[in-house]
Amino acid sequence: MFWLVPSLSLAAQARYRVTTDGAWFYQEPGGKRLARLARGAIVVGGESQDTWQGVTVEGWIFVTSVGPTPRAGYDLAVSRAPEENLRSAPAGALIGKLPQGFLLNKVAEGTSGNWVHVLRAGWVEKSAVEAVAQVASTRAAVADSDTGGLTPGRRPRGPETPGQRSGVNAPDTSASPSAPVDPSRVESARRTVLYRAPEGAPAGTLAPSAPLRVLGRSGDWTRVELEGWVKSADLEIAPPGVLMGITAAELRTDPQRYAGQVLRWTLQYIAEQQADELRPEIPNGSRYFLARGPLPEHGFVYVIVPEAKRAQLESLSPLATIQVTARVRTGRTRFLGNPVLDLISLETLP
């Protein structure tokens, strides 16, 4: 006969999910409003007071959007006006919008490319959050052949260790309690195709039970992050100040985030055009070319060509594959929603 005996302890700190979009993050209970949090954001709980819950907000923010601060007890302050996004991971799901001047502490070893890992303690109203479920660990109790079984809720007592008095607890050698359930941690249920963007071309295949982290959701699609290892010789290091691996879908979703950033894309050249009043994001009369990408995405991209680079276009044939380094003018045009880039350099690929 077997019994499942629940462990007496749960994982340490409680976690809460924000249930109200735009919920205020306060400096102290009933005090100054500091920032707004996004619905679905996960925060770590602290002490509580009446209708208030202490929380710690942790996430990632652009390095260029923060700077050092002289304020005691803090490392950084948001420098971008009027506000900047805090995300669950580099380019991950939105946690909240932090106004200029918002104070932060940097997490040790907390940098990843153009991102910095930060946190801030504060308060929220209890009505704006809900507890994330936690799971108690369980342990199987083996039947005692002499007594015929165990009384539910009791543990057998083995022989006393020399020097140990009866009634004194032995060191706890049981398995560690389970960690809290994290809704952002999932696994692939079967062999699954990985796409660069919703409705885009396949980028690879995931094996069953591949560990994934959820960064965001859109309709029937879920954006995930996969952690693993590749051979160093198979990697290409991005030049300083150049973003790689950014999709057009990311630009359309958060155009202000990437405005002015330099990125490298592989595109399929279609044709050269001249701008008119129907494309207000491109100076009227400017030369630009229409392309698809970044490959394997199928959406359209407008790339403005400076006078010094126009000669390179003459040698391009339609549907040629090219690699461009360009600065983002806008991530999404007003009428068609296509990214607009300013060309810096262009290279024809085989």
Rank of each mutant, 00 (worst) to 15 (best):
Q49C: 02
P90G: 04
T266W: 01
A170Y: 06
V262M: 09
V193T: 15
V116E: 05
L263T: 02
A271L: 13
F62Q: 13
R279S: 12
R87C: 08
G46I: 07
P283W: 08
G101T: 10
F102K: 08
F289S: 01
R185M: 13
L343Y: 04
I304A: 04
Y26L: 13
V107I: 15
E347S: 09
L243T: 02
D254K: 12
E347G: 00
E187K: 04
A249F: 13
F25H: 12
T161R: 06
G67R: 14
G22T: 05
G216H: 07
V5Y: 06
G54Y: 09
R155N: 10
W229I: 02
G285N: 11
W221I: 03
G337E: 07
P239K: 15
R217W: 02
L212S: 03
H117T: 06
A91V: 08
R71E: 15
T325W: 04
I95P: 00
G110I: 08
V18P: 00
A141S: 13
K309A: 15
P183C: 12
V186N: 02
Y74T: 05
W221P: 00
P90V: 08
V214C: 01
A35K: 12
G285W: 04
L263A: 07
L336N: 15
S286R: 12
Q274D: 10
R190Y: 06
G219F: 03
L278K: 14
V78K: 04
A326M: 05
I95N: 12
P208M: 12
E109G: 07
A311S: 14
G40N: 12
P280S: 11
A249G: 13
A38H: 13
N114F: 09
S218G: 01
L343N: 08
L150A: 03
L313Y: 08
V55A: 03
W52P: 01
A197N: 04
A175F: 11
A248E: 09
R292V: 03
W3K: 07
L295V: 15
V305G: 02
N105W: 01
V242A: 02
E109P: 00
I246V: 15
A131Y: 07
T330C: 10
A238I: 06
E236L: 01
Q27I: 03
T111M: 09
R80H: 08
L341N: 06
A128R: 08
I344T: 07
R36V: 06
V262E: 08
E47Q: 12
A233W: 02
A141Y: 14
S345M: 07
S218R: 15
L235V: 14
S112I: 02
A275E: 11
R217T: 12
T138G: 14
R332Y: 05
E125S: 11
I270Q: 11
L278T: 14
S174G: 05
G293D: 02
R223N: 04
V303G: 00
V135M: 11
P296C: 10
V168L: 13
R165H: 10
Q164G: 01
M1H: 14
A121K: 14
N85T: 11
M244I: 15
K126C: 04
W221K: 00
Y288H: 07
P296Y: 09
L212I: 05
W229D: 00
R332G: 03
V305I: 10
